[in-house]
Amino acid sequence: MASSTTQIFSSSTSTSNPQFTYDVFLSFRGEDTRSTFTDHLYSALVSNGIHTFRDDEELEKGGVIAGELLNAIEESRIFIIIFSKDYANSSWCLNELEKITECMATNDQQIILPIFYHVDPSEVRKQTGTYGEAFADHEKDADQEKKEKIQKWRIALTEASNLAGYDRQKYQ
């Protein structure tokens, strides 16, 4: 993976605009992939000189995204979104994804690379299976403001999962 990773990112970052602080921003559900897939990916990126943002344990979890995280999203060139089984259970992940898709709408120099890790891309796109269950939970007792937020999450998931990405299930 390291050699193909280096090829992809060195060509992308060699002409990178100085407005970007990070080459890559990793969006993932920590409980699903932090100590497995994401950790290996992060190590490979960093060891190849790719400046990568990965949240740390000190960022407050849940609710409103921290200012530091918003800045990291805005200042990243490439977004690798690791859609795992329980990604949609996390309002933190969904808020992050919403911000990423907002940035993409205004900056054509940013790129999203979705990775479908042990989840079918159509499940993410159509919000069925575990994604449908997660949204049913989010919608329970939701007031109007939360319903509007949930609709933005649904749109962000559909947009991101419609992009060409890497389906981990196909390569097992």
Rank of each mutant, 00 (worst) to 15 (best):
M1Q: 13
S3L: 12
T5W: 12
T6V: 15
T6Q: 15
F9N: 03
F9C: 05
S11R: 10
S11G: 08
S12E: 10
T13D: 10
S14D: 12
S14I: 11
N17Y: 12
F20A: 02
F20P: 02
T21S: 10
T21D: 10
T21R: 11
D23R: 04
V24G: 09
F25Y: 13
S27A: 08
F28T: 01
F28M: 07
R29V: 05
E31T: 08
T33K: 01
R34D: 05
T36V: 03
S43M: 11
A44F: 02
A44W: 06
L45S: 01
V46I: 14
N48E: 08
G49D: 08
H51G: 00
T52D: 07
T52M: 06
F53Q: 01
R54Y: 04
K61E: 01
G62T: 04
G62C: 00
G63R: 06
G63V: 08
V64T: 15
I65F: 00
I65K: 03
I65D: 05
A66F: 00
G67R: 10
G67C: 09
G67T: 13
L70H: 09
N71C: 11
N71G: 10
N71M: 12
N71H: 14
A72G: 12
A72F: 00
E75G: 06
E75N: 11
R77A: 01
I78S: 06
I78C: 06
I81L: 03
I82P: 00
F83Q: 04
S84N: 06
Y87C: 04
Y87A: 04
A88V: 07
S90H: 02
S91Y: 02
W92L: 05
C93A: 00
E96L: 05
E98A: 09
K99E: 07
E102S: 05
E102H: 05
C103D: 00
M104L: 10
A105K: 09
A105N: 12
T106A: 10
T106S: 10
N107C: 05
Q109M: 08
Q109I: 06
P114H: 05
I115D: 01
F116P: 04
Y117N: 03
V119I: 07
D120R: 04
P121L: 02
E123H: 07
V124P: 03
Q127R: 06
G129R: 03
G129W: 05
G129Q: 01
T130Q: 06
Y131R: 07
G132M: 08
F135L: 11
H138T: 03
E139K: 13
E139S: 14
E139M: 12
K140R: 14
D143I: 13
D143T: 14
D143N: 15
Q144C: 13
Q144P: 12
E145M: 14
E145Y: 13
K146I: 11
K146V: 11
K147A: 14
E148G: 13
K149P: 13
K149W: 10
I150N: 13
R154M: 12
I155R: 15
A156L: 07
A156K: 06
L157A: 09
L157W: 04
E159L: 14
N162G: 15
N162D: 15
L163R: 12
A164C: 13
G165M: 02
G165Y: 01
Y166A: 12
D167E: 14
D167W: 11
Q169S: 15
Q169F: 12
Q169C: 15
K170I: 15
Y171H: 15
Y171S: 15
